[in-house]
């Protein structure tokens, strides 16, 4: 396995044109993400988080700068080359789920694995595992159009993980979930992280971010804080009552 960063950006810039007015969304980001790491990206609304991860997924062209993946320059790739790269290496969970309405939930999740050359049996077993972990086993035969927003979001996550992508890119993947479903997602993400897959995730949910090794904070299209998430200084909590202390 190579030691190159899974993702490396060099002075990455994105300027949208809004009716002739330039909108600088990402303003010179240098980011390097090591294999197997879990990076959470946070920052206020409009700070450029979605724009950044869209560029990393090849969904939005950069204005200037470079993007490298595992030692290979990718910002210069054609759309079809990006599509291939995604199929082989990248799982995406974005705010538009793009689930296919006239296929069942099960087929939506199995499709990427089948496209990547998995046998039907492998694809089915992987799908059963993922939907089971996310509490969606009983929705397998439904159309995604019949699911609630939070359910669709979890299907999109299952689909993104179907191929065991070496890189999972996600933009607010728990934004529509209640706490029980968030817990399922957290458990699955911990497993994915433990399995050595690299995760880059935009999130405002502190429970999700707390699973990460590293927190990157954006403000106005720039990185303003970047550091590891430390273990608390005190001994870890042993039981819920340790949250309280009594004086008698």
């Amino acid at each position: 396995m190579s030691n190159d960063p899974v993702v490396r950006t060099v002075n990455l810039v994105k300027i949208y044109q809004n009716g002739g007015v330039p909108v600088p969304a990402v303003r010179g980001i240098d980011l390097s993400v090591e294999p197997g790491s879990f990076t959470a990206i946070t920052g206020p609304s409009g700070s450029g988080k979605s724009t950044l991860v869209h560029m990393l997924g090849g969904l939005d062209p950069r204005t200037s700068g470079e993007i490298w993946m595992s030692g290979k320059r990718v910002d210069t790739l054609s759309e079809s080359a990006w599509a291939l790269l995604r199929r082989e290496r990248i799982g995406l969970v974005f705010q538009f789920f793009n689930l296919i309405g006239n296929m069942t939930v099960a087929d939506n999740v199995e499709l990427p694995a089948l496209l990547a050359g998995a046998t039907p049996r492998e694809a089915r077993e992987r799908r059963e595992y993922l939907l089971g972990e996310l509490g969606l086993a009983d929705r397998a035969d439904d159309s995604p159009t019949r699911l609630a927003g939070g359910e669709q979001q979890r299907v999109a996550l299952a689909r993104a993980l179907a191929n065991r992508p070496s890189l999972l890119l996600a933009d607010e993947p728990t934004g529509n979930l209640d706490s029980r479903n968030t817990r399922d997602v957290l458990r699955l993400l911990s497993q994915v992280h433990k399995d050595g897959q690299t995760i880059i995730m935009v999130t405002h949910d502190a429970r999700v971010a707390s699973l990460a090794d590293r927190l990157v904070t954006l403000l106005d299209g720039q990185i303003v804080d970047d550091g590891s998430i430390p273990a608390p200084r005190r001994r870890p909590l042993g039981r819920a009552g340790d949250v309280i202390e009594l004086h008698g």
């Binding site: 707390s210 904070t217 998430i229 909590l237």
Partner: peptide, 30 residues
């Protein structure tokens, strides 16, 4: 702000671990 944010996330991770290791039937604890 950055340091404090990351510190809070460390505590959050600790609480998350605590929730994972507390039996589900202990509802008050959860």
């Amino acid at each position: 702000i950055g340091r404090q944010t990351r510190h809070f996330l460390g505590i959050m991770r600790d609480l998350h671990h605590l929730a994972e290791t507390t039996p589900p039937e202990d509802r008050f604890a959860h």
